[in-house]
Simulated assay, not measured.
Amino acid sequence: MERLVETARDYAARATADNTNTAYARDWAHFASWCRRRGADRFTPDPQLIGLYITEMAAPQDGSPPLAVSTIERRLSGLSWNYQQRGQRLDRQDRHIATVLAGIRNKHGKPPEQKEPISPEELLEMVSLLSFGLRDMRDRAILLLGYAAGLRRSEIVGLDVNRDDTEDGKGWVEIEDGGAVIIQKTKTGWKEAEVARGSSDQTCPVRALKQWLHFARIDHGPIFRRVTRDNGGVQADRLSDKHVARLIKRTMLGAGLRSDVPDAERLKLFSGHSLRAGLASYAEVDERHVQKQLGHASPQMTRRYQRRRDRFRVNLTKAAGL
């Protein structure tokens, strides 16, 4: 029975993504600290107490910056999940929570800040900065494959060479004659992304990936790994997803992109999401193909990524006779 209990706990932990579990744990720790400072009981899901908590998140009493509405909502989700794990229920529809949250949304709600998409021309300028040492071969494959497959940064570094290579892997790559197929584990099941070969060797993500695997001598386990300081070999550890964001910012600055903007502002324009947004915005194909590649359940979500979408392609004004 003890072994079954441990197995059940392991399955329960895998019900949500590792990043989500980490975020929820931080949410609970923050709430617990807030309760201790005020002598409140954190273990009882009291809607009135939660209402006061989110009020202080939106209007801190100590003069610290207020949290974004999306962060407050995420923290509420984290508290709900933590109470659920304790066999309790937090009623988020209770007026002490729902009305306060509605007021916070009305007063502090803002449109979501979106990172700039990277165009194909900009990506090639970034890639051109990279040499053919091991570290740069790895980074070239990250940029080209991440762009062509429309991957999140966690999905890029979560790839393994083969299926079931590692316990923490989020997918694997099958290289075929025509290209590569990326099979990934998502919140809603499994999805596939097809990455065909590029128009030239210099821009082909499949060739870049094969080149990295060959020279790094990787045939099992994580695809993207740390490289030794002397650039002479690879380590066994999986690369952190933060490396993708740092890589994009570094090569973007090095290529002189958006040089009319001060460096501090330029760094805020791009992130790991810029690869995914770039594919959605610049791929000249039918929208449904982009939706499938990104793994979106609806075209509405895909359109949020299409920063340069032609909003007035369908002219309802003229169609109405005006």
Score class of each variant (00 low, 15 high):
161 V>S: 00
161 V>C: 01
161 V>L: 01
164 D>E: 10
165 D>F: 04
165 D>I: 01
166 T>P: 02
167 E>G: 14
169 G>S: 15
169 G>C: 10
171 G>D: 12
172 W>G: 06
174 E>A: 11
175 I>V: 13
175 I>L: 07
176 E>V: 02
176 E>A: 02
176 E>H: 01
178 G>N: 14
181 V>E: 09
184 Q>F: 05
187 K>P: 08
192 E>Q: 13
193 A>D: 12
194 E>F: 14
194 E>M: 07
196 A>T: 14
198 G>D: 06
198 G>M: 11
202 Q>G: 15
203 T>S: 11
204 C>H: 10
205 P>S: 06
209 L>G: 02
210 K>D: 05
211 Q>A: 05
213 L>Y: 00
214 H>V: 00
215 F>T: 00
215 F>M: 00
219 D>H: 02
219 D>Y: 01
221 G>C: 07
222 P>W: 04
226 R>S: 12
226 R>I: 12
227 V>D: 07
228 T>C: 07
231 N>G: 13
232 G>D: 06
235 Q>H: 15
235 Q>G: 11
236 A>K: 13
239 L>S: 12
240 S>C: 15
242 K>G: 09
242 K>N: 11
247 L>P: 03
247 L>F: 09
248 I>N: 00
248 I>V: 09
249 K>N: 14
253 L>H: 08
253 L>E: 06
255 A>R: 08
256 G>K: 11
258 R>N: 10
258 R>Q: 07
259 S>M: 09
260 D>K: 14
260 D>W: 09
261 V>W: 09
264 A>T: 10
267 L>K: 13
268 K>H: 15
269 L>H: 12
272 G>S: 09
275 L>N: 03
275 L>W: 03
277 A>W: 00
279 L>F: 09
279 L>M: 08
280 A>F: 02
281 S>P: 00
282 Y>F: 12
284 E>L: 07
285 V>T: 06
